[in-house]
Design a protein around this nucleic acid. Sequence first.
RNA 1: GCCCCCAUCGUCUAGUGGCCUAGGACACCGCCCUUUCACGGCGAAGGCAGGGGUUCAAAUCCCCUUGGGGGUACCA
Length: 493
Amino acid sequence: MDTVRVRFAPSPTGFLHVGGARTALFNWLLARQKHGVFVLRIEDTDMARSTEASLEGILEGMRFLGMDWDEGPDKGGDFGPYFQSQRLHLYKEYADQLLQSERAYECFCTSEELNAMREEARAEKRDPKYDGRCRHLSADEREAKRAAGLTSVLRFATDYDGQTTVDDRIRGLVAFDNRQLDDFVIFKTDGMPTYNFAVVVDDALMQISHVIRGEDHLSNTPKQIQIYEALGFAVPQFAHIPMILGPDKTRLSKRHGATSVTQFRDEGYLQEAMVNYLALLGWGYDDSQTVFAPSELIEKFALERVSKNPAVFDLKKLEWLNGVYLRDLDLPTLTAAALPFFQRAGLVDESPTTEQTARVERVLETLQPRLKRLDEIEVSASYFFQDVVEYEEKAARKGLLKGSAQEILTFLAKHLNTVSTFDEPTLKPVFAAAMEQFDCKLGDVMQPVRVAVTGTNSSPSMYEVLPILGREVTVQRIQNAVTFITVKQEEES
RNA sequence: GCCCCCAUCGUCUAGUGGCCUAGGACACCGCCCUUUCACGGCGAAGGCAGGGGUUCAAAUCCCCUUGGGGGUACCA
């Protein structure tokens, strides 16, 4: 079998978004599974919108997801260059070939003319297509227009007879009537080729075997097939994968919140979780499995199993999956992944000491079962590193300003000061004593302590939290809470 | 407008004519575990868009309607 050569061809006009990443992923998975080649090609022919920053963002996103490319920027390869802006001579060459064979022609129409043409067509309820008026200009007429200083574009001389059929790996045979097409532009006045032309020249020259891309490209495929044929190129296999939608069922965009891959990384999503979730968007394996490690995806991915219908991006499921992967991490790995988030939150120094790192590790051990995103750390781990300066209103009301909380805390502050070590075996008797003394349930003594030391009413077990904080801090925070209660009570009366 | 694609629980999906009284996962709800919050366990609720065919038999095949998405650029 021939080598599988696939490509991801983003245009550097924004960040790598979820949709693009999913397209890249399907290409990458196929390449890796078939021991083929994954090409990254930058489609930067839109001079006005392409930026260097976007390119960097896209590469960063690709790296974050672990999708390495065999040919492309930073890598080179035998089919370069991999920036369309550097392949102009190639597009020129093939455009000339079309000119020679009269499958392309110069068009001198201005945009005003074109607009008028479309308006008129609409008014007469005809399709707003280019009418081919420059197609049969004589050599003399073209010369005259050039002499008059008119600029021109190159248009493809479309074949209007019959149908063009796309043989799609996912959708089967899709037929288009050629009369639907028009003589589309292949070279712009700015000297750049248009997408529909450049993509064909590149995919053919780069010997791409499978063109896997979003369904939004399906309707343009017949145009491209006509170019392949006019140029005598072999037509690759096509696979148009479904779109990704927002919760409102419209195409996913910034309006729907985070859609940039690097933003997800910054919010504390793991590479594996992200890749797993993206794979699930439009692909499924069987009736039982949803968690797939990257290596498993490479093994099990199949174009045949890609769904035909658009998928709604479900942040909740991504979060759940991220939690699954977070819980699966061993402590050193989790610590390495989470440290930047502690630093960003100002909980530890930029160059943490070994004691700090050890503490972070201990904290993570207790937090791990409830972690969904790493950026939650800023909130859920703060009390391990910083004083509790205020209590959540609800937590204070239910945990401190109720029942005998003040007496219980006073009792605890006194007795916790006497225990030798500070761990579950030594702590337990103290809480038991408090329960007996105040004739109450364990929760009645734990909740006040929890609020006192964390400021909230949700945290890991006190038997885990207290040893990490140590006796001094614990007792201090309990005393602070007692003072707080006293002040509140005075305010009341 | 015209063309193309699509249509199973709220969401992602399994299902390729009988195995379907339609399976799983997330979310939701309830219960258990429990010092809170999570985690975990158990359970409930929830779907074949509608209408016609074909067939002994249809979620599965065909047609229509409806709905959604995409294309129709000198964007990609």
